[in-house]
Amino acid sequence: MSVSALSVSALSDSQIEDLITQSLAARENSYSPYSKFRVGAALRTTDGKVFQGCNVENASYGGAICAERTAFVKAVSEGHRRFVAIAVSCDFNSFITPCGICRQFMNEFGKSLEIFFVNDDRTYKRAILEDLLPFAFGPEDLPDNSEKQKA
């Protein structure tokens, strides 16, 4: 089920299934004692490596980090900057979408990122980041982009 105007995924069915499996597994590591809202993410790089992330809450609430950003931070900290897709799952039987700060964070690495919203029963919806964050502000909007980090 596609939310995006793009009708075909860049990933094979088996690659999508792997992302779904890994996002559901990542959810198991969630630290969410306050909201009880466990979220898992699996982020695929252009070279096929997958990084998992889960949400990690904090008693100060503002110190929490979402599963999507956790996966990106892990990947970037290991030298990856180019991504194909991310799958996001939660405990509820509904399709959740990334929050605003996660959308902006992901935009830093490309507007064409595929996002799979995963239910417990492994069904999913698909979107492209640009559809979820139209008219996004990104690195290309900065006046002096000559010092931009190489992708």
Rank of each mutant, 00 (worst) to 15 (best):
F116E: 07
Q52H: 08
E114G: 06
G110T: 00
A59E: 03
S77T: 06
V3H: 08
Q22M: 10
P98I: 02
V56A: 08
N145D: 08
V39F: 07
I115F: 04
C90A: 13
Y61H: 01
E28T: 12
G53V: 11
T45S: 11
F109C: 04
F117H: 15
A25L: 14
L133I: 02
V84G: 07
N119H: 12
Q104K: 13
A87P: 06
R126I: 10
Y31R: 09
S60D: 03
K150S: 12
G53I: 10
E114Q: 06
N58E: 00
Y61V: 02
D91E: 02
K150W: 15
P139S: 08
D18Q: 12
N93T: 08
G53K: 13
P33W: 09
Q15W: 12
Q15T: 05
A42I: 08
A87W: 06
S35R: 03
R38D: 00
E114D: 03
D91R: 05
S12C: 13
P33M: 04
A71W: 15
M1S: 15
L132Q: 01
N119K: 13
A67Y: 05
D121Y: 02
R103M: 04
D120A: 14
S7I: 12
P98S: 04
G63A: 02
A5M: 12
E28A: 11
Q15F: 13
F137P: 00
G62D: 00
V56P: 07
E68M: 11
T21S: 10
S9F: 11
N55D: 00
I16Q: 05
C102H: 04
F83Q: 05
F135A: 12
Y31M: 00
C102T: 03
S32W: 01
L6Q: 14
S14P: 06
S23F: 10
F116H: 09
N93S: 11
I115C: 06
Q149E: 13
D144W: 04
K111V: 02
A26P: 01
F135H: 08
S32H: 07
R126Q: 10
S112K: 12
K111E: 08
F105R: 03
D121F: 02
F92E: 07
E57T: 04
P139V: 08
M106E: 01
P139T: 06
A87C: 04
S146Q: 06
A10Q: 10
N145K: 14
D18M: 10
S35F: 00
V118Y: 02
E17V: 01
D121A: 03
D13A: 15
L133S: 01
R81F: 15
E147C: 10
A42E: 03
A25M: 09
Q22V: 04
S35K: 03
A5S: 14
A87G: 02
R38H: 14
Y31G: 00
E78A: 15
A71R: 15
E140A: 05
T97F: 06
I101W: 05
S23I: 10
D131P: 02
T45W: 09
G48F: 07
R69H: 15
Q22L: 11
K36R: 13
E28D: 02
T70F: 11
S14C: 12
D18V: 02
R103K: 13
N93H: 13
F109L: 07
F116D: 06
A5G: 14
